[in-house]
Design a protein around this nucleic acid. Sequence first.
DNA 1: ATGGTAGAGGATCTA
Length: 257
Amino acid sequence: MKLATWNVNSLKVRLPHVIDWLAQHQPEILCVQETKLTDENFPVTELAAAGYQAIFTGQKTYNGVAILSKYPGIETVTAIPGLVDEQKRVVAATYGDVRVISVYVPNGEAVGSEKYQYKLAWLPALVHWLKQELERYPKLAVMGDFNIAPEDRDVHDPVLWQGSVLCSQPERDVFADLLNIGLSDSFRLFTQPEKSYTWWDYRMMAFRLNRGLRIDHILLSEQLARSCLSCQIDKAPRKLERPSDHAPVMAELNVIT
DNA sequence: ATGGTAGAGGATCTA
């Protein structure tokens, strides 16, 4: 079973890239973030023609998440239970006995800003919910744009970024909480190339210079982590014309669906 | 020179 996640930065603009990528890699599941589409505008027909169904929750202009899959999902949830939040940032569904969550963590803008406060309030609600999900679903995969670079090796220039948003200690502490409740960073289950990143700013030739951060993650429960065979970042779509600023991350699991 | 680019929407906001 192949699982993947990709912040597409507008599914409307990126739909051709997404459909090509699905055809090439044939994942059972692709979590997407930043669809920037209301639900009535979601490209259900085009994805169905590509062999994928979708569960989604979106809004105009900002945010929006989805799970694309080859098989139908059940037990759909489109918000963190108990959290009052206008922004569409999570969607969950169950495929066989695998629970999948697509998540778009707030960016946080800058340390000390209102958006940073929102991020630091939002994240504990996510952790609390995931703890409950882990109790209910032993096979849990949480995938998406976490907007957190967990360690200095996930940052092209740790000195430049030290203490900045995406790298600050309070954010990294929450990421550690995610690991402490029983999730594994699937990318770090394996030996990886140095300077592996998933996001590069559009500006300043950041991609060409590989000035990136690893902020998109596939987190797996213990049961799924045990069956994980590989996890890799696919930089190829970032090299296309009009790319997303994020690259997809894909994991292969020894699980039959 | 606190810059630069992309998306949405139609002036800025967000990233």
